[in-house]
Amino acid sequence: MPRTVLVAYGTTNGSTAQIAETVAEVMSKEGLTAEARPAASVDDVTRYDAVAVGGGLYAGRWHKDARRFVRRNRRELTGRPLWFFSSGPLDASASEKDIPAVPGVRRSMTRLDARGHVTFGGCLQEGAKGRIARMIVRNGKGGDFRDFPAIEAWAAGVAGELIEERGKN
């Protein structure tokens, strides 16, 4: 039986959604059944064998929908294979070095025994929602810093781990 994976995400301007969709696509190509869904729209995680949760970073905090999803589903997430990802730095730093999880995500990782976390570069472009986001773009600090080959490699690694476990069961 194929493993089913939920890739839940919290996003404001769509950048994290595109990352989540890429993660789900790669996992599907690897032989898993994976779907990306907005974290706020998920009301039942029990039908999934594994979960990846992603959130855009805003002022050092994960997107509220990702935080609420983890809090709302903490019992069901406990004991399931679980990974977290963040998107946010508006520079090349995420491609150059490992950026640790922000404190709130780190606490959730410990409580839920998450298997890992990765931070990917973010994307903030013209037409972004929010006063601060628009100001960042207006000041020339926006751009697309997502590294899709790195995102795909991470997703393939997670899929490989799940497939290997499936083979042992």
Rank of each mutant, 00 (worst) to 15 (best):
L82N: 11
K64E: 15
G60P: 14
D98L: 11
I151R: 01
E126N: 04
A39Y: 02
E152M: 04
Q125Y: 00
T110K: 02
L57A: 09
M1N: 06
N139T: 01
A20C: 12
G157R: 02
A150P: 06
M109G: 06
G31L: 05
P149K: 02
E96M: 11
M1T: 04
T78K: 12
I132K: 03
P38H: 11
V158R: 02
G157Y: 04
P103L: 01
A36Q: 11
R71A: 15
A150K: 03
R74D: 15
L32Q: 05
E96C: 07
R115H: 00
W83P: 15
G55Y: 13
L82H: 10
L6S: 13
M135N: 01
F69Q: 14
C123Q: 07
V51D: 06
C123S: 09
R72P: 12
A50E: 07
E161R: 03
A114G: 03
W62R: 13
D49V: 09
R138T: 04
A20K: 10
P81D: 13
L124H: 01
G88R: 08
A159S: 02
E21L: 12
N169V: 08
R131Y: 01
A66L: 11
R67Q: 15
E164Y: 01
L6I: 15
R71Q: 15
M1Q: 06
L90Q: 13
A153F: 05
K168M: 05
G116A: 00
T119G: 03
D91E: 09
L162S: 01
R61V: 12
A92L: 12
R111W: 00
W62D: 15
A8E: 14
R74F: 12
S93N: 07
A34P: 07
R107S: 13
V158F: 05
V23G: 09
D147R: 01
V5P: 05
